[in-house]
Amino acid sequence: MKVLKIASALGVLMLSGTAFGQACETTVLATDAMKYDTKHIAVPASCKAFTVTLKHTGRLAKSVMGHNWVLTQPDQAHAVASDGISAGLANNYLVADDKRVIAATKVIGSGEEASVTFDVDTLKSDQPYTFFCSYPGHISMMLGELEVVSAQ
């Protein structure tokens, strides 16, 4: 009976978006001042998938002060953002099917939110990744690091 209760509890944890008590999701806030509320995201290695929800807490429309959340290798972030300018807002300032993009939300404006879920197994735990906003010019201020971390 105890084994059944433990198995049931573990199943509930996994279904609720946690891996052994660790959250497999985070929320990132973006403002009209071109800032994320965090510069670092730690993803538990025990997560199979991880979800980032981006919330725009500012008052400006996406055509004026839009934001997205894009994940790449550190050495590819600036090139992805630069190449994405020509793709335009309709394409979330990202080149279609860009293989350098690991995960990305759509561009959002005031009061909106968007989420993206990605497979943690595709990331290496021994290296950092870069997240940024690809809206033209925003990468200079909206840039952070994501890493996969083992349970402590």
Rank of each mutant, 00 (worst) to 15 (best):
H40P: 04
G58A: 10
S82N: 14
L15Q: 07
E147K: 11
G58C: 14
G66H: 03
A49G: 06
Q152E: 14
S110Q: 14
H67E: 05
T130P: 15
F131W: 09
P74V: 00
S140C: 01
S125E: 13
V149T: 10
S16G: 12
E113G: 07
L10H: 11
M141Q: 09
G84R: 00
V107G: 13
V64D: 11
V80P: 02
K55V: 14
E25D: 02
G66R: 09
R59Q: 13
P128F: 10
M14S: 10
G144I: 07
D32W: 00
A23V: 10
V148C: 13
V64F: 08
A49K: 04
F50M: 00
A90T: 15
V43C: 05
F118G: 00
K124Y: 05
I102L: 01
A114W: 13
M141S: 01
S140L: 06
E113R: 15
D97H: 04
L89R: 03
A79C: 05
T72M: 09
Q76I: 05
K99A: 00
T57E: 15
H40M: 06
T53I: 07
D75G: 13
S16L: 15
S16M: 15
D75E: 15
E113H: 14
T130Y: 05
D37V: 07
A42D: 15
K2C: 06
P136A: 07
A81G: 09
G88I: 01
L54V: 02
S134E: 11
I41F: 04
L54H: 09
A61M: 02
V80Y: 02
I6N: 01
L13P: 05
G84Q: 09
S82R: 15
A42W: 05
V64L: 11
P44G: 12
S140Q: 04
T31G: 08
A42R: 04
H56Y: 05
A23T: 08
V80T: 13
V120P: 12
R100Y: 13
G11E: 11
L15A: 14
T122F: 10
D32C: 03
E112T: 11
Y93T: 01
I41E: 09
A30H: 11
